[in-house]
Amino acid sequence: MLVEVFHRTEYRYAEPAHYTIQSLRLTPSSTGTQQIRDWFVDTGHPGPLPAFVDSFGNLTHTFTQRGPHDSVRIVARGRVWTEDNGGVLRNTPEPFPLPGYLRPTALTTPTPALQELARAHDKGPGKEVETLHGLMNAIRAAIAYRTGETDARTTAADALARGSGVCQDHAHVFATACRLLGLPARYVSGYLIASDDPHATHTAAHAWAEAHVPEIGWIGFDVSNGVCPGEGYVRLAVGLDYREAAPIRGIQRGGTGEDLTVEVRVAAAASQQ
C-alpha cells in the first residue's frame, strides 16, 4: 500500500523565543517492509539541516533558530510503500546491539507490579509469540486509552498504576514487561492510517512497541489497537523509550505563552502504484 503522510507541528509564542533547538527524528528509513518513495522535512531553515545517524539507526536532524522568533513550524511529508508481514520486520538497520534492548530506562524502570504483569503472561521458552500476544491484550485491558491524563514524563509504572494512558504509555509498559522476561524490546514512533476517511486529521503521531523473538526477529505490537502493525503503519524512529524515539525533542529559551498545534494526516495514496 502506498501511504501518504503529512505531519505538521507548530509552536507559537506570545512573547518571542530567542533561541530554539530541536532534535528531529522525522525521517523514516527503508526496511524489508517499508520503502520510502519520497520524504521531506521542512522547517523553513535555508539549506539542508545538519544531521547524524543515532545509535539506533535513526536519521536525526538538528534544527536551531537564533534571534527573536514567535513561531516554529516543522512539516514532514512524504509517501511510503508498505507491505503486510504480520508485524514481523525484515532488513531493518540494526546498529544497536541486541542485548542492549534489555536495558531499563527512566521511563521503563521495573516495579513489582510490572514484574507481576510480566510473570503472569510468561508462557516460557519457545512460546514467546504467545506470551507477547497475551501481554498485549492484558496491557490493553489494564490501561484504558484516554488522552490528557498522562504526558511525556509518565513512566510505565505510573501508567500501569493509573490504569489509563495513551499509545506511548502502552508501548512503555509492553517494552518493560518484555525486558523483564528477557526479551529485547523497544519503543517505536510512527504513523498509522487510523480511519478510512482520507481527510481525517489527528493531533499526534502514533507509537507502539517491538519485541525480539529468537528465530523470528523483531515483531511489532500496537497495544493501543491490539494488533501487530500491518501495511497501514509507517515506522519513523526507534529507541529504548519515548525520549530516544520522539519525532521532535526541543528546548527553547525565552518564548512564553507557548501554543502547540499538531496536525497529522495519514492515508492510502489516491493513485496506487
Partner: peptide, 25 residues
C-alpha cells in the same frame, strides 16, 4: 569482549554508566 564471553554483557549493557547514545559513535 562481550561476544568472546570475557565479561558478562549485562555488567556493561545494564550499567548506569553505560550510555546507549554513545553506541556506534
Amino acid at each position: 569482549i562481550l561476544r568472546a564471553g570475557h565479561l558478562p554483557a549485562e555488567l556493561v549493557l545494564a550499567n548506569d554508566a553505560y550510555r546507549p547514545e554513545m553506541q556506534g559513535v
